[in-house]
Amino acid sequence: MENRGHGAHPPGGGRLEWIDVARGIGIMAVAVGHVWTRGGLRDAMYSFHMPLFFLLSGLLSRPQPVARFTRRQLVSQMRPYAAFLVLLIVADQIIETMKGGRPIFHDWPKDVLPILLGGSWLRGPFTIFWFVPCLMMARILFNLGLARWPDPLDPRWAWAMLPCLLLAYGAGEFGTLSPLGVLTVPMALVLLWIGAAWQCLSWRGWMFVPLALLSLAGLMALVPTLNMKAADYGWPLLSMGSAIATSFLLFRFSVRIAPFGGWIAAVGRASLVIMYLHVAVIHYLSPYLGKPWLLMQALILPLAAYYLIRSAPGARRIFL
Results as ranks from 00 to 15, higher is better:
V66I: 15
Y169V: 08
S57F: 07
V75S: 14
I94N: 03
A91V: 07
H6M: 10
F248I: 14
L192I: 12
R156K: 14
V32I: 15
G234M: 03
D20V: 01
E17C: 00
P179D: 01
G268V: 11
V66M: 13
I140T: 12
G13R: 00
G58L: 01
L189D: 07
F84S: 01
G14Y: 02
W235F: 14
G170R: 09
A298N: 05
Y306Q: 03
G39T: 12
A196T: 06
G40A: 15
R148I: 13
D20E: 10
L165G: 15
G261I: 12
P163V: 03
L226Q: 08
P80S: 10
R148G: 02
T176Q: 11
R72Y: 13
K291G: 10
L135N: 03
S76W: 14
P155G: 10
W18T: 05
T127S: 14
F174N: 01
M207S: 10
F251R: 04
L295S: 01
Y233R: 05
F53C: 02
P80E: 12
H106W: 13
A147S: 15
D154M: 08
W193T: 01
A270T: 01
L294I: 12
V32P: 01
P163N: 06
P10N: 05
H106E: 11
L191I: 06
P65T: 04
R156S: 05
Y233S: 04
G261M: 04
P103H: 09
W36P: 02
F260Q: 10
R316C: 11
P51V: 06
V185D: 00
S202V: 09
D154K: 08
P63K: 10
S76K: 15
R310A: 15
L216D: 04
R15H: 08
E96S: 14
V112G: 02
Q93M: 13
V112P: 01
L74H: 12
G39E: 12
V32W: 04
F48V: 07
P259V: 09
L183G: 00
F260D: 02
L308N: 08
L74C: 12
R156T: 05
